[in-house]
Design a protein around this nucleic acid. Structure first.
Lengths: 206, 206
DNA sequence: AAGAACCGACTGATGGTTCGGAAGAATACG
DNA sequence: CGTATTCTTCCGAACCATCAGTCGGTTCTT
């Protein structure tokens, strides 16, 4: 009637986790379902007991990865009292994400864009997932900024445009990270961010 | 001895141009060599008389596209006297690029990143092409800024950090364009840029 | 007639998805 | 207690579709 019961959710996570590692290592297209199965220690057919398609594995894996990322960022910056330090800690985390070697995050980013923009891509009809992720990052920055305003460290007038400012800061970080990933000069990358953030902090602090 | 002579270069450009249209419409992976041949009005085998591989078609097509883009930008901004207007004209062109409908540029950008970051990608071992393109854009911005300094419209002290400033501006534009492409809200996009540029111009003008 | 230009059928490899059935565990029954 | 039954879980061989790239031959120009 009801033999061997398995925690489907847990197994899904295991498969997605193994898959994420491969996606980050070789890219989505170059990773076959057979390799995912092998990495997860199961048979190819079994994968399809837990996911209807390769695309769904990607969506699940990326979703978990991004959620984890944003959670860690919120956690790490939550208890920093000084708003300027908190902002800088956030930026430091953004920089750190890029320097993970083994499962290479830049491949994940490239694949996410690909799957978001191409018709038929895994995220093409689930763009809301990507949008929600961006919104979560934006919320964190807004929170840091408003915290600074309430502590009388940042100018009160930035509260009015706080979401514009947050989006612009995130856009800059996005762009400069991309610049670094292409140009591959870490020192320049750090200098650029320092230069920018100095101006930014000057602009928002009282 | 020397029969039918064809302008190889010209034919290469024709094929690449037909290919670019398809790449921008359906993406690199979803475009087959057969479709490129059909679009160019030739047979599949003929394509291989002009290009050794599909990847080379992509490199050639993207190269031509980016060159044309940068040339048009230089051309359009060359004769604007007022440095602030010139800067704004440049930004206007960047915005315009995103709004080309038919051969969708965002798919090209996604494919370029893909082919640059993935081992074995068309640009993976030719990253210098992408780097050079970015450098060309940077040069244009630097030129605009220094022109403004020499015309006593922009602060003289920005000359020292002019290349840092240019890269940061381009990074911001990159990032905010990506933001727009994902979020798909044009009004917000324009407001964000306006907001940023107002601050930027304030910061650099005397 | 020589060689440049062209062509599309063919090849070979790849990889997502399906499927028929094996292995195993809980229950039902004799 | 042992056997049959039933349903879950697992599996990898086989199926199928898709192309990038090749090749042998045709057409065209000089």
């Amino acid at each position: 009637m009801s033999p061997k019961l398995i925690d489907k959710t847990e197994k899904c996570n295991e498969i997605a986790s193994a898959a994420l590692y491969l996606f980050a290592k070789k890219g989505y297209a170059a990773t076959s379902v057979g390799q995912i199965a092998e990495a997860a220690g199961i048979g190819k057919g079994t994968v399809y007991e837990y996911f209807p398609s390769k695309e769904d594995i990607f969506v699940h894996a990326i979703n978990a990865w991004m959620m984890d990322l944003i959670n860690r960022m919120v956690e790490k910056t939550r208890n920093i009292e000084n708003p300027v330090d908190r902002l800088k800690a956030f930026i430091e985390m953004v920089k750190d994400v890029l320097n993970v070697e083994e499962p290479d995050p830049k491949k994940l980013f490239a694949d996410i864009d690909q799957q978001t923009f191409m018709p038929g891509g895994a995220f093409y009809k689930r763009r809301h997932i990507i949008k929600d992720m961006r919104a979560a990052f934006c919320d964190l920055v807004v929170d840091i900024l408003l915290d600074g305003v309430s502590k009388k460290v940042f100018k009160p007038e930035i509260a009015r445009d706080v979401s514009k400012i947050a989006i612009n800061l995130l856009a800059y970080l996005d762009g400069i990270c991309m610049h670094y990933l292409i140009m591959e000069e870490y020192q320049e990358f750090e200098d650029q961010i320092d230069f920018y953030i100095r101006g930014f902090v000057d602009y928002i602090t009282i």
